[in-house]
Amino acid sequence: MRYALLMHYAEPAAGELSEEVVAEARRAFDVYAKALDQAGVLRLADVLRSSDATTTVTRRDGGLRVQDGPFAETREALAGVFLIDVPDLDAAIGWAEKCPGTQWGFVEIRPVATAFLDGRWSA
């Protein structure tokens, strides 16, 4: 099964984190992604820029609306996605537990319903 590991955490203010802390987090994500890759379960890994770089687009209310910032202001913001392919939830929990993001935030494990693979949507 494919699972998205969605990292959520409070975004640090500019200058809140020292370079040392940032470098350490980078190292942790490097080790983590390589472990996922070597296990053959990693499909995608993206760490996102903070939400002040976000632009939101909607046509839900008729006309096109482009807005500066995320669609909902929350204390914890989506901060990154790891997409993994593992046999079951226990395996997904096992990888989520090791995600560096758990140390300062939350990792949501969301099963993938359908994915566009090899030119078509999977069943």
């Binding site: 099964m1 226990d90 997904a92 494990i109 099963p111």
Partner: peptide, 14 residues
């Protein structure tokens, strides 16, 4: 079913 909870014995650690 949706979350993929497995019907198997967990690892020894768990």
């Amino acid at each position: 079913k949706a979350a993929g909870i497995p019907f198997r014995l967990p690892d020894r650690d768990d």
